[in-house]
Amino acid sequence: MTISPLTRTVERSLPSSLAGGYIEFIQQILSELLEFGWRQHDLFGVQMALEETISNGIRHGNKEDPSKRVHVQCQLSPNRFWARIRDEGKGFLPGSVPDCCAVENLEAPGGRGLALIRGFMTKVSYNECGNCITLEKLLNAEDTGASNSRTASPPPK
């Protein structure tokens, strides 16, 4: 697909606190996408993916260690959202997380963040050690769910 020339880049280093600072950052991203004409339904998916990845990085990656940061890089355009979120933790193996959607796990209270990230994004990938996730949502892609195994592409030059 063609990458819009209107692409805007936002980078931020966030503290490892769930107290709310990162929520304002997500609101900033949503406001910028809204200015690009994104609809509420699509903004919901972006909000969900950013909320789950950043809070996972703070909680599970950095273990809320105040000396560590969560690094977020976003590229925004009228038809594409791309983000790379890296924490300073040891990482994890995405395949080791139990499938929360399996019938036998439905009543387990945790572990749904990864399923939601995959569900709302067009493409999701991880680095080798699992402390960095890359997200991409294309507005003209087919709806969520069918193409989640694809690897997210690198940021445009």
Binding site: Q40, H41, F44, M48, C100, C101, V103, L106, E107, R112, A115, L116, G119, F120, T144, G145
Partner: peptide, 16 residues
């Protein structure tokens, strides 16, 4: 809402 229902559907909670 349709968006919250999608959250339930993705996680299969619409079955629970």
């Amino acid at each position: 809402s349709p968006e919250i229902f999608q959250v339930f559907a993705i996680t299969n909670l619409d079955k629970l």
